[in-house]
Every structure is written in C-alpha cells, then in structure tokens.
C-alpha cells in the first residue's frame, strides 16, 4: 500500500458574482497515492482549474481542507504556503512559462536553486532528468531555440527535479500537436510512476487519459464520474476532445466569477 500524498476533504470553493454565489468546486473529496497519476477532466467551467489551484495552495478553499503529506494547507500562513509550494509541489503550466533568458538546464535548476541546493547537486540532477526526457542536445539552448514540445519537456523536468510529493499539470498539451502531446504526457507519466510522485493533470484532451491510472470527471464543480478500470480508460481515451465538452453542462465562464 502506497502512502497517501494528497487528500481533500469535502473541499468547496464559492465565488461571489454580483449577488450570486457560484460553487466552483462543490464538496470534492479525493485521495491520491504516491506513484499514482490522475487526470482531472471536464468541460470549461466545471471547476477543475479551481480545484488544481486549491491543490497547489494558490487558492484557499471556502470549506473543507486539503492535506499534502498529511499537512493541512489551510493552517499555513502565506509565507509557509510559499515555502511548501517550492519544496513539496511541482507545477507545469499550460504555457510552459520558462524563463526566456535561462537555458534549458538553468531553467530546470531553478527549483533546486530556490530550495538552496548546491551547484554540484543541481547540475547532475538537472542533466540527468533532461537527458531522460531526450533533451541532451538542448541542455544549453534558450527556450526561444526549442520547439514547443521541447519547451514543455523542460517545464516537466523543472516540475520534477526537486523531487516533490505532488506534481500538478494544467493543460500541459494545450499548445502541442498530437504527436508531441503524446510524447510529453508519456514522459510525464513515466517519471511520475518511476519516481513515485503523486501526479494530477488537468486536460481537455481525453486521448491523454491512456497514460493515467484514474480519471476524475468534474461537472458543475462536483465529481460526476470516477473511472478507475484500465478498460474504461482505454475506451475514454479513444473518444475525441469534443466529447468531453458535451458530457457535462458547462454553466460558468471565467468572466462570471470574481475571485
């Protein structure tokens, strides 16, 4: 039995839009173990990004609690949460957001620098993970010299290098073509499984679900389906991106909410 890395207990996030209260995330409880990779899917406005932001400790739940490695994020001060993020959480964003003036290896080392690791430790680990992701020829190239897929792989390396307990990815394949999307998510999945991180990926692209262990589908802020069998996941991943938009009734857009 793997240790539980992430646990949410009846997490709810309510936004106020004019006089209307919108439950962006409504009473969600999940558990993710080390070495487990989960896809969070759902139509726009289903609450998956809000959920991800709460898991990343960038947003505080209105109700309920989020525990990572048994530590409740709600009890932490802002400063403690910032420290917790850089030590325990890895993050890959929709746009890779690499630092444009740092080379691939320098971008990846950034997390270790932030965590005060020494040069020797940084260099070795950064090189190892970039080589593992097939970027040995791009170690000293700037982001502008890399393809979109290579940039995203550098971002993945950056999110994993400091050996975080929880790795979060927000639409990591949104700007990639199909072949590159598969390559990136497969790399991501392999590393999460091998290095025993707990991984959560928000995606619109159901085809990417074949690389995960569980699929959580959200609709209107609630978990509407939980798919755990590999057979069901295979079926789901054969469907198109359009299908997911039709599955739920998207009821809220970002314009409607005020954080």
């Amino acid at each position: 039995m793997e240790r539980t890395v992430l646990e949410t207990q009846q997490v709810t996030k309510i936004y106020r839009s004019n006089e209307i209260l919108v439950r962006a995330v409504d009473d969600v409880s999940i558990q993710v173990e080390a070495g487990e990779f989960i896809a969070l899917v759902g139509p726009s406005g289903s609450g998956k990004t809000t959920m991800l932001a709460m898991l990343a400790s960038l947003l505080v739940p209105t109700e309920g609690s989020v525990l990572i490695d048994g530590e409740p994020l709600g009890d932490m001060t802002d400063r403690q949460r910032t420290k917790f993020r850089r030590e325990k959480i890895g993050f890959t964003f929709q746009s890779n957001n690499l630092i444009p003036y740092l080379t691939s290896i320098e971008n990846v080392e950034l997390m270790l620098r932030l965590n005060g690791k020494r040069v020797k430790q940084r260099r070795g680990r950064a090189k190892e993970i970039l080589v593992r992701l097939g970027l040995d020829a791009q170690l000293n190239q700037l982001p502008s010299q890399l393809s979109a897929g290579q940039q995203q792989r550098v971002a993945i390396a950056r999110s994993l290098i400091h050996n975080p307990s929880l790795v979060l990815a927000d639409e990591p394949t949104a700007n990639l073509d199909t072949a590159r999307a598969h390559q990136v998510v497969q790399n991501f999945s392999d590393l999460i499984h091998e290095e025993r991180h707990a991984g959560i990926m928000v995606t619109h692209d159901l085809r990417m679900c074949k690389y995960v262990d569980r699929v959580i589908q959200m609709v209107d802020g609630k978990i509407s389906h939980l798919i755990t069998s590999q057979e069901e996941i295979s079926v789901l991943s054969e469907s198109s991106e359009f299908d997911i938009l039709e599955m739920g009734g998207a009821s809220m857009t970002k314009k409607d909410v005020i954080r």
Partner: peptide, 14 residues
Amino acid sequence: IPQIGMLKAIGTPD
C-alpha cells in the same frame, strides 16, 4: 507578468 506569476506559483518568495 506571466513570468513573475510562474515564479510566485512555484514558490519564489516576494
């Protein structure tokens, strides 16, 4: 701004 946002999100102190 996106770069600074990313730095803050990954845990860079103010």
